[in-house]
């Protein structure tokens, strides 16, 4: 579904991605592990068109999207749930969802999808008219996912969806990730919580210092010593 080949992205002279190659299989959940500063968010931004890679190639189903503007990438069927910056705070929950469907013109379809989101996230229905900035952290994360889904993406990118959330909320997020995937959405997930990720993802990559240093199935992850030590030996405090 998504093919990333030798992508180099730099901030000025500093290369945050030093030639990243990986692929995300259609219909699967792929998870990207790695320490802070490894370049995971930079990769997400490079795919979504926020950052322009210096070299390399990014293709979605054989269609090249390298260096496209973010709106064109959304049009091509990719949606990103970014880390931290989750919702438009001064807009209501409903307005946030409408914003997610900005590029779509099919009013009936948008209305139907909105109802589907409210079924999937009943708590958002309760808060429909409330300003998004007043929601709890978990609710904002749900809204952020729902907003991204409103563009009807074929590929959903999620940057650390469990960051800073309570364990119960994290479980709910991962339940939703599994459901979405079962309904046909391909998911590419950045996660530090390897324990949770192991329960849902089909394939893993490990990124360190701007490079992919490991690729394998959940079984291979549990075998790999490098990941054992860093991610599974003790649960990370954050």
């Amino acid at each position: 579904m998504l093919d990333v080949r030798d992508v180099v992205t730099a901030y000025g002279k500093i290369e945050a991605l030093k030639g990243v190659t990986l692929s995300v299989a259609e219909g699967r959940i792929t998870c990207l592990l790695g320490p802070n500063g490894a370049g995971k968010t930079t990769l997400m931004y490079s795919i979504a068109g926020i950052l322009k890679p210096r070299r390399g190639r990014i293709a979605l189903k054989d269609r090249e999207i390298t260096g496209r503007a973010p709106d064109q990438v959304v049009q091509a069927g990719v949606a990103l749930v970014p880390e931290n910056r989750l919702v438009f705070p001064q807009m209501s929950v409903r307005e946030n969802l409408t914003a997610g469907a900005y590029l779509r013109r099919d009013r009936a379809g948008i209305a139907a999808d909105m109802e589907r989101m409210f079924q999937r996230f009943p708590r958002l229905k309760e808060r429909e008219g409330q300003l998004a900035g007043t929601l709890s952290g978990g609710e904002q994360q749900m809204l952020s996912v729902a907003r991204a889904l409103m563009s009807r993406p074929r590929l959903l990118l999620m940057d650390e969806p469990s960051l800073g959330l309570a364990p119960l909320v994290v479980e709910e997020i991962f339940r939703i990730v599994t459901e979405l995937n079962r309904d046909g959405t391909t998911i590419f997930l950045v996660e530090q919580n390897a324990h949770m990720a192991l329960k849902v993802a089909h394939h893993f990559y490990l990124m360190e210092q701007g490079r992919v240093s490991f690729s394998g199935t959940p079984g291979e992850v549990e075998e790999a010593e490098v990941i054992q030590r860093a991610y599974l030996g003790s649960r990370r405090a954050d």
Binding site: T9, A10, G12, I50, K52, R54, P70
Partner: peptide, 13 residues
């Protein structure tokens, strides 16, 4: 210009 003009450099929204 350093951010916007050079094709290979970072582009920030």
């Amino acid at each position: 210009g350093i951010g916007a003009g050079v094709p290979s450099a970072e582009r920030r929204i």
